[in-house]
């Protein structure tokens, strides 16, 4: 029987290289792995962790170690953090010098522009995947829609929207 920590590496190591355009983009795959493939937790618990990762400061990608903590405790979390942050870090470190020397080269723009639509599709898929499993039925859709519209049309702060969502759910459902 393989050591369970191999699972952590197998899940999170590839995600280090697959994160394009911010930590949001991999959330749909973290969900797929944690709930469907590995069976570490239920949809409901994953959503709670997602909510906690939004409420706590720091990179949104900390969701991954939080999920690993739930699955395998502190050492699992540490391993997941190393797996998700280290490989891509070495890539940036290695390329930082090259990037300066070839500043503004055409290939850089092509990479940047070419990855943007892929990242957009990934982020939208993350939102839709979690909406599909969100608890609270129509209310979850309504709150998500209202928060989307407010963020797109006003200068509403996420500081206020997240507690507002909690309050609405508490009044309506608890």
């Amino acid at each position: 029987m393989e050591h369970p920590f191999w699972r952590i590496l197998l899940v999170f190591l590839p995600l280090s290289f697959l994160t394009v355009g911010g930590g949001q983009s991999i959330v749909s795959d973290v969900h797929r792995q944690a709930v469907e493939v590995q069976g570490w937790m239920s949809d409901a618990r994953f959503l709670e962790l997602f909510a906690l990762s939004r409420l706590t400061p720091g990179p949104g990608a900390l969701l991954s170690p939080m999920v690993a903590f739930e699955a395998m405790g502190p050492w699992g979390a540490l391993l997941a953090a190393l797996a998700i942050f280290t490989p891509s870090s070495f890539l940036v470190w290695g390329l930082a010098g090259l990037w300066r020397r070839t500043h503004g080269a055409a290939w850089q723009k092509a990479v940047e522009r070419g990855l943007a639509p892929v990242a957009a599709g990934m982020i939208l898929a993350a939102g839709a995947t979690l909406l599909r499993v969100a608890e609270g039925g129509w209310l979850a859709w309504a709150v998500a829609a209202a928060s989307t519209v407010l963020l797109m049309t006003t200068r509403a702060s996420p500081f206020l929207l997240l507690p507002a969502g909690a309050l609405i759910f508490w009044v309506a459902l608890a």
Partner: peptide, 27 residues
């Protein structure tokens, strides 16, 4: 507490979705 976190998650989904929509629109 469970429902309040579900409410936070729903509102936070708005954050992801608007970020995705903006990026999709630019593309």
């Amino acid at each position: 507490a469970h429902w309040m976190l579900a409410g936070v998650a729903a509102a936070a989904l708005g954050l992801s979705i608007q970020m995705g929509l903006r990026a999709a629109w630019r593309a």
